[in-house]
Amino acid sequence: MKIVAICGAGVGTSAILKVNAERALARLDIDADVTAADLASVQVVAADAQVILTSPEFVEAIGRTNADVIVVQNYFDVDELQQKLGAALG
C-alpha cells in the first residue's frame, strides 16, 4: 500500500500531512508507506499509489490519476484523516 502526500514545495505541509496520516493509519491498523512529495513530481511519485492526500488547491493540478485523491481540510486533525482514509481504504 502506497500513499502520497502532495504539497507545493514538498518540504513543509506535505511533511506534516505524512506524519499525521501515519498516525491515522496506525489507528486504523493499516500498513502503508506514506511519502511526501511536491506537486511537480506527483505523476512520477504517485504512479503506483493507492491514495493521494492533498489540499483543495492541488486537486485540479494533480490531474488524471488512478489513485483516490483525498482532500484534507485540517492537516492536524488525525480524526479527519482517519475517517477519510478509512472510507477510501476500508
Partner: peptide
C-alpha cells in the same frame, strides 16, 4: 509560494505555515 500554488499553506483553521524551498 502562495502566489504560485494558492492558499494551501493555511493547513488548519486560523493557521498558516509559511515556508519556501
Amino acid at each position: 509560494m502562495v502566489e504560485e500554488f494558492g492558499a494551501y499553506i493555511v493547513i488548519a483553521p486560523g493557521l498558516a505555515l509559511a515556508h519556501a524551498r
